[in-house]
Structures are given as structure tokens and as C-alpha cells.
């Protein structure tokens, strides 16, 4: 960016909207250090009390653990299945390919409430009790299309000839997959995994219908929003989570950008 653009209307607008986007986050972090049980202005003074009390909030911490485990497991599955689907779509021509692509993209454009209640009916029909597992299934369904598209767009940046070249040099189909295709996909798979994890970690609209007795963090948060006295704790935790997720996402973005860079070179 050149110096004269710093004061251009476009840049000023960008700065204003960015402030608008970050304002709520800043407000939460400020309140997490505010010495008052109610989240109202004016501020009362600095405290670390809420962070200290977090350690004793068992339900809250259990919900965090549940969300982390759920996020990790469902994201591994979603990334694996999404990668398989992406390789299938990008590298193989099979009957019904377009139909498969259309159906696999559908979960992206179905309102979550519909997906949630439909899965609720399914599990009730089967007599499967609701639990973190049923939530996990929903998260996999939600994340597979995104994982698929992220990996597929990476693969599209590379010549199909690469796999043919490996076969030509004597490598088997599975060997080619392991030594060429997957290493090429790896950055996109990591990015898909991180994207799945953050989605799962934050997902509430569907989880709400499918959750059993053990809460995920968003489900717990939702239940706590009605009890103002517990809000400062929630806010303190929220600040931690936001800072951590900002760090994670920054890492993911950085990976993705370096990925883009590489794939451009690779396709040259």
C-alpha cells in the first residue's frame, strides 16, 4: 500500500468496519477484568477475581473439555472423509459425480435448525439416546462439505499429471496417494481440520437439539446466559477462548496463505 492510500476513503472505511468487528471482543475482554457481577457501565475497577474463580467452576471446565474432545474427534473424521471425497471428485471420473457433488454440498446450504431437527427425529426413530456422539455425527455432516471444498480447491491447483508421473515412475495407486497426493493435500487438510474444529467448538444451533446430559461449551454458555450472576465467569472464560482462537485462526490463515502461494507455483 502506498502512503497516499492510507487516508483514502476505502482504507478509512476498512478501519471503521474492522473496529466495528473487533469492538464486541474488546468489550468482553474489558469486562472480564471489571470488578462487578453485572455487565453494565460504568466500569468498577480492575480485578483478576473472575479468572481465579474459573478454576473452581467444574461444570464449565467439563463443558470445555467436552467441546475440545468433540471438536478434535469430529474434525479428524470430517477432514478424513472430506479429503477422500475431494480426491474422488478432483481426480476420478465416476458415474454420478455431479450428483454426488451436489448432494455433498447440500449440508452447507441447509438451515441448521432443519438439520438439527431432522437428525433428532432420526435418532429418536432408531432409539439412539442423545449424547455427545449424536452431536459429533451432526458436526461431521456439517464439516465434510467444507473440508471437501478446501482440499479440492488445493488439488485443483496441481496438475493431474503429478499422479500420472508417479504411476509412470512405477509407484502403485496407494503409493501415489501416500507419497504424492496426500503430501500435496496436507496443508489444505490442516486448514480444513482447523476450520472444522473452530466450527464444531462454536456450534450451537444444531447441538442444542442433539445434546444429551453432558453439555458442550456453547450449550453450557447458552444455559448460563439467563443467570446474570454467573456471567462474569463466562466472560472471563470467553476472553481466554477468544484470545486462543484468534491465535489459532491466525495460524490457520497464515498456513492457508502460504498454501495459496505454493499452489500457484506448483501449477506454473
Amino acid at each position: 500500500m502506498q502512503r497516499r492510500d492510507v487516508l483514502s476513503p476505502g482504507f478509512l472505511y476498512f478501519v471503521m468496519l474492522t473496529l466495528f468487528l473487533y469492538a464486541p471482543i474488546v468489550v468482553l475482554v474489558v469486562f472480564s477484568f471489571n470488578d462487578s457481577r453485572t455487565l453494565v457501565f460504568p466500569l468498577r475497577g480492575f480485578t483478576l477475581r473472575w479468572y481465579g474463580e474459573l478454576a473452581g467452576a467444574r461444570e464449565l471446565l467439563a463443558a470445555v473439555v467436552n467441546s475440545v474432545v468433540l471438536g478434535l474427534m469430529s474434525s479428524v473424521v470430517a477432514t478424513g472423509l472430506g479429503t477422500a471425497a475431494a480426491i474422488g471428485i478432483a481426480r476420478h471420473n465416476f458415474p454420478g459425480r455431479r450428483f454426488f457433488l451436489a448432494v455433498s454440498a447440500m449440508p452447507m446450504v441447509i438451515p441448521y435448525v432443519v438439520l438439527g431437527v431432522a437428525l433428532l427425529i432420526l435418532f429418536s426413530w432408531w432409539g439412539v439416546p442423545l449424547s455427545l456422539w449424536t452431536v459429533g455425527v451432526a458436526h461431521v455432516v456439517i464439516n465434510v462439505p467444507y473440508a471437501m471444498l478446501i482440499v479440492a480447491s488445493r488439488l485443483a491447483g496441481f496438475d493431474k499429471n503429478l499422479e500420472e508421473a508417479a504411476m509412470d515412475l512405477g509407484e502403485t495407486y496407494w503409493g501415489t496417494l501416500r507419497r504424492i497426493t496426500l503430501p500435496i493435500c496436507a496443508p489444505a487438510m490442516l486448514s480444513a481440520f482447523l476450520s472444522s474444529f473452530t466450527t464444531s467448538f462454536d456450534e450451537f444451533a444444531v447441538s442444542f437439539f442433539l445434546i444429551g446430559t453432558e453439555a458442550t461449551l456453547p450449550v453450557y454458555l447458552y444455559s448460563q446466559l439467563r443467570f446474570p450472576s454467573r456471567l462474569p465467569l463466562v466472560v472471563a472464560l470467553a476472553s481466554i477462548i477468544m484470545v486462543v482462537s484468534i491465535l489459532l485462526v491466525t495460524l490457520a490463515e497464515w498456513l492457508r496463505n502460504s498454501t495459496l502461494h505454493l499452489s500457484r507455483q506448483g501449477s506454473a
Partner: peptide, 8 residues
């Protein structure tokens, strides 16, 4: 190969 298909 035409575009060399070197493993990047």
C-alpha cells in the same frame, strides 16, 4: 510430461 509434472 508436457508441463513436466515435477513433484512440488
Amino acid at each position: 510430461f508436457q508441463n513436466y509434472a515435477l513433484f512440488p
